[in-house]
Design a protein around this nucleic acid. Structure first.
Lengths: 197, 197
DNA sequence: CAGGCTATATATAACTG
DNA sequence: TCAGTTATATATAGCCT
């Protein structure tokens, strides 16, 4: 029999990080397990989608989701499938992503500040709509840049390939394939990815 | 005093969706709150990052994160998943971007519609706040990938140059260049690159 | 329908081997 | 470090207002 008084010292009112490393690790295992269980119960009992991600301070990843993956849950929330045509249409915008993203951060802060105030209903919404547009712009800019870079990389690498081929053929250079790092030759997946963006 | 026997019928062994709509809704509120609390406790007590997303069957989003927003955690999550299955994840994110922009369009319309009506303030704003987070997430993911690709490109070009140099200097074995090294070797290279991202 | 109550079920801190 | 034990703390189902 345990007579000891078991007071959960770090719980209750002023609860904070468990300082003892060993205790913290044990608590982490138990509570992580418990959280996962709760998440599962919630998703099943209440028929909702639940996703959870836990990243330990050592960088280890643990996750739960009621569907295939957390990404899937986010996708489901975001909406329905969109045709690729709209994407290619979106890729038509110019530069200056850094300025936009800084402005976005400012807008986020401003917006959050304004939302905490009781009055002023129209302004936050207006700002948010504005923010939406800016975010979309930034989004498209970055996507455009990315695609551009991917295409440039592809081109550059093909040039490299051709160059290698040409020079080696001309000089009748031979090589050993067993221990050498391969040149960058694009695999099919990468091209698919590029097409997708 | 309650004399009734309180047997949690839908719990225990064969636990499943609570059929009664009202009960399910009540349970959802209580358990959601509980899960959030657990998540918060876990993050503080064990000093880890925790993110949770709950999507009710009515499409309403609830989330928790130990940091400012889910953004950072989700990005780290994506990073982890990415290093395991890079290509498919790349595609997923691309799709997610598409979904984001679509959802944003929907919200814009919804918001404008609701702004014309006298009341109903909380819903659009709440949704817009969530939209903010989601857009930022997408933004950060894409930006991260942009940087990743820049670094990859640099690294690969260096590898290419080194490879070319080495092979031109050392000419022993002849080979047929129409049959180029298999692309999948490159994938290993990429994974190495991804590890420190 | 939201909020409060209480009995019960579950989670887990402290401990043991 | 790991798996079990038990007292205690917390969560919550069912009921009520």
């Amino acid at each position: 029999m345990f007579i000891n008084v078991r007071v959960c010292e770090h719980l209750g009112l002023g609860f904070k990080r468990i300082e003892d490393k060993s205790c913290r690790q044990v608590a982490f295992c138990k509570r992580r397990k418990g959280l996962m269980k709760k998440a599962k119960e919630l998703s099943i009992l209440c028929d909702v989608d639940v996703g959870a991600v836990i990243i330990s301070n050592r960088g280890r990843l643990h996750d739960f989701s009621s569907t295939n993956s957390l990404t899937g849950i986010l996708q489901r929330y975001e909406g329905h499938v969109e045709s690729e045509k709209e994407i290619s249409e979106e890729i038509k915008v110019a530069e200056q992503s850094k300025y936009s993203s800084m402005k976005m951060g400012e807008l986020l802060q401003t917006t959050e500040r304004q939302l905490e105030e009781p009055n002023a209903d129209s302004l936050p919404v207006t700002d948010l709509i504005h923010l939406e547009k800016e975010l979309q712009t930034t989004l498209m800019q970055i996507r455009s840049r990315k695609e551009k870079m991917l295409r440039e990389e592809n081109k550059l690498l093909e040039v490299n390939r051709a160059w290698i081929k040409k020079n080696i053929n001309v000089n009748e250079i031979s090589m050993d394939f067993t221990d050498l790092p391969p040149p960058h030759i694009l695999c099919g997946q990468e091209r698919v990815t590029l097409d997708f963006l």
